[in-house]
Computed example of a mutant assay.
Amino acid sequence: MNRINTRKVKVGSVFVGGDAPISVQSMTNTDTRNIKETISQINRLQNAGCEIVRCAVPDMEAAEALKYIIKEVTIPVVADIHFDYKLALNSIDYGVSALRINPGNIGSIERVKMVAERAKDKKIPIRIGVNSGSLDKELLNKYGKVCPEALVESALKHVKILENTNFNDIVISIKSSNVLDMIESYRLISQKSDYPLHLGVTEAGTPWRGTIKSSIGIGTLISEGIGDTIRVSLTGDPVEEVKVGIEILKALQIKKQGIEIISCPTCGRTEIGLINIAKEVEEKIKDLDKNIKVAIMGCVVNGPGEAREADIGIAGGKGVGLIFKKGEMFKKVKEEDLVEELLKEINKM
């Protein structure tokens, strides 16, 4: 798929937009003022594959905590700020790699200009984050409701404020909890602007429901060539956000990271305990750093073909399984030995 070309900005060590790979982001849900806990969570996120992390900065104590957090982590840190321009100025001085603000809600144009000039001096970008839950009343009155056109107009209004201060190192996000509105908003903004786009379905929900909504919203846009960086918003451990984001990119064959597992849903033809086998294999190989495809199939109908298409795989029979490697049948194994033998061969690859 061809990606729509956007400008390129630099967030710490990570490029966003242009020809840069689509990056996966997350946001800490710790109290930023709890320095130790926040550092621990950032490290867990990075180990899961997160490339950019955002921290809430509700007050000056949280801003000052960033000074110590940034020294202890190697991933780019973005300060998420609302209303108080002084928090933005201090966060820049403490070494953040980017800001997430809405210029229209941090005060007068003079204050916006101060933030933009400081960010420009430090060579850090600003992400404008428009959210369907916080659309200004003027636009709600104009359009009568939250809609893609209103969200896009809001985003462009904030962009114009920064452009008027001669600041152009901008990333845009337009998030909605309504998947269809989110998709259409990004389609519209991609036609009106060439700034890089940060994709996400906001307040998507619990890991189960939020994964579905995010996969549809983010996946649809990326398949159309729209989007430069993503964040899956889930109610829970943010490490799950990273895992889902990576899986979305892997499903679209954009990112190759870790082992890809394909497994059949099982049916009445299945004669081995495939569900438990698949769960056990997935758990035991989740941390392996190998770019291979593993097929776990339950019967002789599609099993052998899918197993042959993978780098390694199994096709189940009655109490037994066939292990395939690189398209060729490798060995026949008893069901009770199947996981152990499959793992042995995976570790050899």
Rank of each mutant, 00 (worst) to 15 (best):
M1D: 07
R3P: 10
I4V: 14
N5D: 08
R7H: 08
K8S: 14
V9E: 03
K10Y: 04
K10L: 11
V11E: 01
V16T: 12
D19E: 15
D19H: 12
Q25R: 12
D31T: 09
T38G: 04
S40C: 00
N43Q: 14
N43D: 13
L45F: 01
E51I: 07
V57Y: 03
D59K: 10
A63W: 03
E64A: 03
L66G: 01
K67G: 05
I70Q: 09
I70P: 05
E72D: 14
T74E: 14
T74F: 07
V77I: 15
D80L: 10
I81N: 05
Y85S: 09
Y85P: 00
L87Y: 06
Y94H: 14
G95N: 06
S97K: 03
R100V: 04
N102W: 05
S108K: 13
I109G: 02
A119V: 08
D121N: 11
K122G: 03
P125R: 06
R127V: 03
S132D: 12
K137H: 07
E138G: 02
L139E: 00
N141T: 11
V146T: 13
L151P: 00
L151S: 02
L162E: 02
T165N: 03
T165E: 10
V171H: 02
S176A: 15
S177R: 00
Y186F: 15
Y186D: 01
R187S: 01
S193H: 12
D194I: 14
P196E: 11
L199V: 12
W208K: 15
S215G: 11
G217F: 08
I218K: 04
G219V: 07
T220Y: 13
I226Y: 05
T229Y: 00
R231E: 09
S233N: 04
S233L: 02
P238K: 02
E240A: 11
V242G: 00
K243L: 15
I246T: 09
E247I: 04
K250R: 15
A251V: 04
L252F: 08
L252D: 10
I259P: 02
I261S: 03
I262L: 14
P265E: 12
T266K: 05
I272C: 07
G273F: 07
E280N: 15
E283L: 12
E283W: 07
L288P: 01
I292K: 05
M297D: 00
M297W: 01
G298Y: 09
V300H: 11
P304M: 12
P304R: 10
A315R: 09
G317V: 07
K318G: 02
G319K: 13
V320R: 10
F324L: 08
M329I: 14
K331C: 15
V333R: 03
V333S: 07
E335I: 09
E335H: 08
V339S: 01
L343P: 01
K348R: 10
K348T: 09
